[in-house]
């Protein structure tokens, strides 16, 4: 049996002999068609121009401006910057007897926050998600209730927390009314240097748990149920299933949650500014707040360059954290 095979014609035939595979055939172009295409391209550029300009101004320009500022001394008003090279970085990290001790203290506080907030958030959000995932009735209502802190988090909520935590606030009243008066704080939970930072950490965790819980819940609901059934058939109990099957499968999500909270802990300062302004004394000063203070609360002293340098130091730390997290995720993945 013979088969008549008709050779398939090449899609394009190029005079230089290169393959023209997957290339569209260009129609013959007339001057009118070229003008039309040019006009079309111009309109395209016109439409994306606002976004490009915004990115250039708000993104590239400000980043570049901030980077250059970190090598200068300036108070926001002088007509010229006073270039100081790497002095700002050196002063912040070790050299200045005024600024380096403040930065070191703030770094310790920041480190505590960076450790406590992600760990506590995961420790609370994961069990909460597991419980919510197994609830059959009112699960939608319960999810909404647990998600409420995220929806309401903001400046107003920080002020509300202040009222709860003050000497005559709801928390002290509650403790006294249930016979735990010895645990109440006569100066308020934010007025005692020993309780101020742990209290702020708890408020941060309260704000962070909803999103973490939602991410865990998403992971749980997309999990292949046959894995859990297989574990049960193998004789694993509920606890064993959670720790040996569910938890390892959710590690990538845990890594994301930890990274997000590390970033917030490292760079966030609003809660510290609003609720304590770094006090009492210097008990709750963190690096993010110190950057803000150097930039805007230093009575017009020329420390904007120092603030910018501290911001870049924080950026480098954040990069390192992200890199470590990425490596960890690769291993876990």
């Amino acid at each position: 049996m013979s088969v008549n095979v008709t050779p398939t014609p090449r899609l394009t035939s190029r005079p230089d002999g290169t393959s023209g595979k997957n290339r569209k055939v260009k129609p013959p172009s007339s001057p009118a068609a070229r003008r039309s295409r040019r006009k079309e391209a111009l309109w395209g550029f016109a439409f994306i121009a606002p976004a490009v300009i915004l990115f250039a101004v708000m993104g590239l320009y400000t980043v570049g401006y901030g980077f250059l500022l970190s090598f200068a001394q300036w108070n926001g008003f002088w007509p010229d910057w006073n270039w100081v090279g790497f002095d700002n970085y050196a002063d912040l990290l070790w050299r200045s007897p005024v600024y380096s001790p403040i930065v070191h203290d703030a770094a310790w506080n920041t480190l505590w926050v960076m450790i406590a907030v992600p760990v506590l958030t995961v420790a609370i959000a994961f069990p909460l998600a597991v419980v919510l995932n197994s609830v059959k009735r009112l699960s939608g209502v319960l999810r909404s209730i647990y998600f409420l802190p995220y929806v309401t988090t903001g400046i107003a909520v920080y002020f509300a927390w202040q009222y709860i935590l003050e000497p005559n606030g709801a928390l002290n009243l509650l403790l006294k009314s249930v016979g735990l008066g010895s645990l109440s704080q006569p100066q308020g939970f934010l007025g005692n240097p020993d309780t101020a930072l742990p209290t702020l950490i708890i408020v941060m965790v309260w704000s962070a748990v909803p999103v973490a819980m939602l991410l865990f819940l998403t992971g749980l609901q997309t999990m292949d149920s046959s894995l859990l059934e297989a574990a049960q058939l193998d004789g694993a109990g509920w606890w064993r299933t959670q720790f040996s099957v569910v938890w390892p499968l959710l590690r990538p999500i845990t890594a994301v949650i930890v990274l997000l909270n590390l970033r917030d802990s490292l760079q966030g300062f609003q809660i510290f500014l609003i609720m304590t302004n770094g006090g009492p004394g210097n008990a709750t000063n963190v690096l993010g707040l110190e950057t803000y203070r150097l930039a805007f609360l230093n009575e017009l002293a020329p420390t904007l360059g120092l603030a910018s340098a501290l911001g870049w130091i924080l950026f480098v730390v954040a990069l390192i954290v992200a890199f470590v997290n990425q490596r960890a995720m690769r291993r876990l993945g």
Binding site: Q162, P167, P186, Q187, G191, T276, N277
Partner: peptide
Amino acid sequence: TPGTQSLS
């Protein structure tokens, strides 16, 4: 006044 250290 109790809590004065936290007041603005």
